[in-house]
Computed example of a mutant assay.
Amino acid sequence: MSAPSSPDQPTEARAKLRVDKWLWQARFFKTRSLSAKLVTGGHLRVNGQKISKASHNVALGDVLTFPQARVIRVIKVAALGDRRGPATEAQTLYEDMTPKEDPVPRGPGSDGKGRPTKRDRRNLDLMRTSRLEE
């Protein structure tokens, strides 16, 4: 249950939250300064618009697109948090719309057994030389 808004704080201010603070509360970044650095670097889009100010406000239903590690994340804001709580609480703040990627196929001959054998290595070399000769 949320506390009633005080007279000096309009209800409109409660419906929005700074984007850097929201990314930090939703645990996409370890520190708030890291999330602010992503935003000021121009790597964040809110509803398709590039945002370069960490003070930009996000509201319920906004779609955020940003890189995280080697993945482009697409996130829909489902709730605005009051604090940076545990991960289970943070996961309720958003809906992940990131498209699932196909797993990377394994190399030929390895089949998950570690390094290729001498025979596998010779076969690989033969395949490579036959491609070059064509």
Rank of each mutant, 00 (worst) to 15 (best):
G85S: 15
L80T: 10
G85D: 13
F66Y: 01
L93Y: 09
Y94W: 15
D96T: 11
R27Y: 13
S35F: 02
L93Q: 12
R83N: 05
R128P: 01
T129L: 05
R115W: 03
A90W: 02
G114D: 06
R45M: 01
G42D: 07
G48P: 03
N123A: 06
N57K: 13
K100T: 11
A87Y: 10
V46N: 05
E134D: 11
D120F: 03
T117M: 06
G41N: 12
A26E: 03
L93M: 11
E12H: 08
P10L: 15
R32Y: 09
V77S: 07
R27N: 12
S2L: 13
R84N: 08
I72K: 05
R14D: 00
L38S: 03
D96G: 15
S6Q: 14
T88I: 02
V46F: 06
N47T: 07
G42E: 03
G41C: 10
D102W: 11
R84P: 03
L124M: 05
K30N: 07
R128C: 06
R121F: 06
P116K: 10
P99R: 00
L64H: 01
M127Y: 12
V39T: 01
V71L: 07
T65M: 13
Q9D: 08
G48C: 04
R70L: 15
T40G: 04
H43E: 12
R121P: 00
A54R: 07
A13L: 15
V58M: 06
A79F: 06
K21E: 09
T92N: 04
P99Y: 02
V63W: 00
L126K: 13
L64K: 02
V39N: 04
G41M: 10
R45N: 09
R115S: 08
G107K: 13
S55D: 12
